[in-house]
Design a protein around this nucleic acid. Sequence first.
DNA 1: ATACAAGTTAGAGTTCACTCTAAGTCAAGC
DNA 2: GCTTGACTTAGAGTGAACTCTAACTTGTAT
Lengths: 118, 118
Amino acid sequence: MNMKVFSEKVGLSSHTLRYYEKIGLLNQVQRNASGHRVYGKKEEVWVGFIKRLKETGMPLEEVLRYATLREAGGSTLLERQHLLEKHREGLMRHIEQQQAHLSVLEEKIDLYKSGKVA
Amino acid sequence: MNMKVFSEKVGLSSHTLRYYEKIGLLNQVQRNASGHRVYGKKEEVWVGFIKRLKETGMPLEEVLRYATLREAGGSTLLERQHLLEKHREGLMRHIEQQQAHLSVLEEKIDLYKSGKVA
DNA sequence: ATACAAGTTAGAGTTCACTCTAAGTCAAGC
DNA sequence: GCTTGACTTAGAGTGAACTCTAACTTGTAT
């Protein structure tokens, strides 16, 4: 799979994919004879996971920590688990907070609907 | 209420408060004889609302649209309501997406716990 | 053979939302 | 009266995550 196809498949620009590679988030990408990148299923799954972590508000630096542990092999399993568990806690708190904000927003909208706001 | 007290009360730095003023988010702040800002309850409530919108992911530019409509008076009530309703829809979708991400994350953590991940 | 689309690199530029700096004025305690 | 801390302004600097540019090479369709 070349850059163009992969880029469209994962929904990230070629610029972004090269940027991820540069910061160490996406290593060991194969090259063909002429130096062009060749992506496979492995990269597709991994980029999908990166995107999920990012969408849940994890900064790239922490995604990179996970990526680095992952590349270090099986001895880092527990540390990776803890990293994800910590992230889950944050995500749960985030969801709760957003739900609280939603309630207040709905109250505000009700004030508008009943003409009680100037 | 002077800068220091207000800053601590609303949890934003004096820099940020002046920045909000500069971009038009916080207008008509009173000044005392020597040109220092004097904040009141009105500003406190308004900054609280700004913070809530911001925390739900609204960019400052859109908060500013709301602020501008608000200052334009009663003729913009419906437009403000629509803006908030649109934001509510986005927020609801965001919460749903985060909940989906949380489920996947929990599955991943379970894989780590049961030793099914390398 | 020739377009032209897509690939490569290093590095510069952009956007958002602050955050800080410089240079100066003002206020409160001793 | 003097130090210390808070205030003022305009404008520069920061960090995250891209996003784009220039200059060049490669691949594909006619």
